[in-house]
C-alpha cells in the first residue's frame, strides 16, 4: 500500500503538468489560428475596397498609355497598343510653352506659401502661446473663429479687395496673405505644440539674457520642428491642389499653375479636347505631391523622435 501511494503521489503531478501544458498549447494554437483567419479575411476585404477606390486611377494610368482614339473605344484595362505619345503631346500642347512652365509657377507659389506660413504662423503662435498682451483670449478665439468661416463667404469680398488694389492676375493674392498668418489652423497647431514645451526652457533662457526674439528663434522654433514640418507638408499639398483660388486670380496663360492648366485640355465649348494629354499630365502632376509627402514623412517622424522630451 505504502509503495503504490508514493508512486501515485509522484506520478500524478507529472501527468497533470504535461496534460496541462499540452492542453494550453493546443488552446493557444487554436486561438492563434482563429486570429490569423480573422486577420486574413479583414485584409481581403480591405484589399477589395482599395481596388475599387484605386480603379479610376489605374484606369487613368493605362489610358494615358494608349492612343487617344482608343481611350473611350476600348473599355478594357490593358491597351492594345502601348504608346508614350500622350505624354509628348500633353507636355507640348500650348504652343511655345511646355507644361513645365506651369510646374514652375506652381512651385513658386508653393514655396512662397510655405515660407510665409512657417514664418508668420510660428510667430503668431509664439505670441499666443507665451506672450502676455491685452485681450489675448479674445484675439485667440477670434482667430480660431476664422477656421469656421467658409471660404465661399470670404471669396467675393476678397476678390473685390484684390481687384481694387490691382493684384488680380498676379500671384500676390495667393502668397501675401500667407505672410500675414491667416492660416488659423496652423497657428492653432503650433500654439498647442509650443504650450507643451517646458516653460522652464524659456525661463532659463530669460535668465541667460535672451530676448523674446532670441527665445523664439533659438529655443522655441527649433523645438517646434515637428509642427513646422506638418505645416510645410500641408501647406504644400493645400497650395498645390488649390484649383479654385488659382483659377480666379490667375488668368493669363503664362501665370497659370498646374491645376488650372489641366483644365485647358478640355474645351467645354465643344472644341477639341485632349483627354490622353490630360491623363498623362495629371499623372505627372501627382508626382511632386507624392514625392513631397514621402520625403517629409521621414522628416515628420525624425522631428518627433529628436525632441527627446520625457
Amino acid at each position: 500500500m505504502a509503495t503504490s501511494k508514493t508512486t501515485d503521489a509522484v506520478a500524478a503531478p507529472v501527468f497533470e503538468r504535461s496534460y496541462d501544458t499540452e492542453a494550453l498549447a493546443a488552446n493557444r494554437r487554436r486561438r492563434r489560428n482563429k486570429a490569423r483567419a480573422k486577420k486574413l479575411g479583414l485584409h481581403l476585404i480591405l484589399l477589395g475596397l482599395l481596388f475599387v477606390m484605386l480603379y479610376p486611377v489605374i484606369w487613368m494610368v493605362f489610358s494615358s498609355l494608349r492612343p487617344e482614339n482608343e481611350i473611350f473605344a476600348d473599355l478594357g484595362l490593358i491597351p492594345d497598343t502601348w504608346t508614350l505619345q500622350n505624354y509628348i503631346t500633353g507636355w507640348n500642347l500650348f504652343g511655345d510653352k511646355t507644361f513645365g512652365v506651369f510646374f514652375v509657377n506652381s512651385f513658386i507659389i508653393c514655396a512662397l506659401a510655405i515660407i510665409g506660413n512657417l514664418v508668420a504662423c510660428s510667430m503668431a503662435a509664439y505670441a499666443f502661446a507665451r506672450l502676455n498682451f491685452r485681450f489675448k483670449w479674445f484675439w485667440f478665439a477670434l482667430m480660431l473663429g476664422t477656421i469656421m468661416l467658409p471660404i465661399h463667404a470670404q471669396l467675393i469680398p476678397q476678390y473685390v479687395f484684390f481687384l481694387k488694389i490691382g493684384w488680380v492676375n498676379t500671384i500676390l493674392p495667393l502668397v501675401v496673405p500667407k505672410f500675414l498668418a491667416t492660416d488659423a489652423f496652423f497657428i492653432f497647431l503650433m500654439v498647442q505644440f509650443m504650450r507643451s514645451l517646458p516653460r522652464e526652457l524659456e525661463e532659463a533662457a530669460t535668465i541667460d539674457g535672451a530676448t523674446y526674439w532670441q527665445r523664439y528663434w533659438r529655443i522655441i522654433l527649433p523645438l517646434t520642428m515637428p509642427a513646422l514640418a506638418t505645416t510645410a507638408v500641408f501647406t504644400f499639398i493645400n497650395t498645390y491642389n488649390d484649383f479654385f483660388g488659382q483659377l480666379i486670380y490667375l488668368t493669363e496663360i503664362d501665370k497659370m499653375t498646374v491645376p488650372v492648366a489641366l483644365r485647358l485640355f478640355l474645351d467645354p465649348s465643344g472644341g477639341t479636347s485632349s483627354y490622353g494629354g490630360m491623363f498623362a499630365m495629371v499623372l505627372v502632376s501627382i508626382g511632386p505631391v507624392l514625392g513631397f509627402f514621402l520625403a517629409s514623412q521621414r522628416l515628420l517622424v525624425r522631428g518627433i523622435a529628436t525632441t527627446g522630451f520625457k
Binding site: P198, E200, L201, A204, P222, L223, T306, T307, G308, F309
Partner: peptide
Amino acid sequence: QNYALYPH
C-alpha cells in the same frame, strides 16, 4: 528641478 537643458 528638471534642469531645463536645451534639448536641441
